[in-house]
Design a protein around this nucleic acid. Structure first.
Lengths: 142, 142
DNA sequence: TTACCTGTAATTATGATGGTTACATGTAAT
DNA sequence: ATTACATGTAACCATCATAATTACAGGTAA
């Protein structure tokens, strides 16, 4: 099991948007850097647009960020691409036996524990911004 | 995307092992409480056995825990059922374009961030024990 | 021997992912 | 307006993990 690479692709895309002159940013350009195909890029662009992280004009190349680099957290990107639904990182088996004291109560017992674990992970993502990523990339690119 | 319910099933199973007289614990009994089929239970039993969390004798019902309730963390169970591989909760797209400064460095930049997030989640699981779960279940079952 | 169990392989259906093609629609320059 | 190029989407497909299921070999004890 892994969380979909849509997330890492979205970060990659936004980093490119941040670092490249707007008129270069086409789905074709992004696809070549990510190494995938333009249609997939456009699907993810649609999600990022819906989440109001980028601005795109239909028919014309040149996406731009709608917020400042440091105002975009990795959590927002992760949520934008719907890679994990809220409170559903962990799957819980459904319909355990209600006639059994354990079966009857296992879901109620486990759910808050799982949510706590998921939240801890998401709080880390919340504290990292696109600005941090861009800064790292710039240093490595020198 | 969700982490396989194998994890919640394993917790359910171990809770039953902890709370039931040994001679009752057959894969059939566990399957009825979990509401799945005995073969799947036996597969998970094999994983828990390999991780040295339980003892099972082939041919005879009656699994028992190999460690005390409070010495078994949810992290150990989660690792036992291989629900997430170490450092691979998040998938990263492979083969980004090395000719692009972003493509060339994105993996190196993102990987430690993802590992930090995953670790935060796992550290929560590490601090919860099977004993905590059993205690909660017992209270609810009253 | 009988009855019941575990261990495990093989098969299947399902659902998410990611790749791909195709095309309708929008934009702007000539 | 026509052309060139872009986005927005739908549709389709191959692949993979999960979970359900069947089947059977082998262990155990009355």
């Amino acid at each position: 099991m892994t969380i979909s690479s849509r997330f890492s692709v979205a970060i990659h895309m936004l980093t490119l948007v941040a670092l490249s002159p707007p008129e270069v940013i086409s789905s074709d350009f992004l696809a070549r850097s990510v190494n995938t195909n333009p249609a997939l890029i456009r699907k993810i662009m649609a999600m990022l647009k819906k989440a109001e992280l980028i601005q795109v004009k239909p028919g014309v190349a040149g996406a731009t960020l709608k917020k400042s680099l440091n105002a975009i957290s990795l959590l927002e990107i992760y949520q934008a691409v719907s890679v994990v639904e809220p409170n559903e990182l962990f799957g819980i088996h459904d319909q355990p036996n209600p006639a059994c004291p354990v079966g009857r109560n296992i879901q109620t017992t486990i759910e808050p524990l799982f949510i706590t674990a998921q939240s801890a992970m998401e709080r880390v993502l919340e504290q990292i911004t696109l600005g941090d990523v861009v800064k790292d990339i710039e240093q490595l690119a020198d």
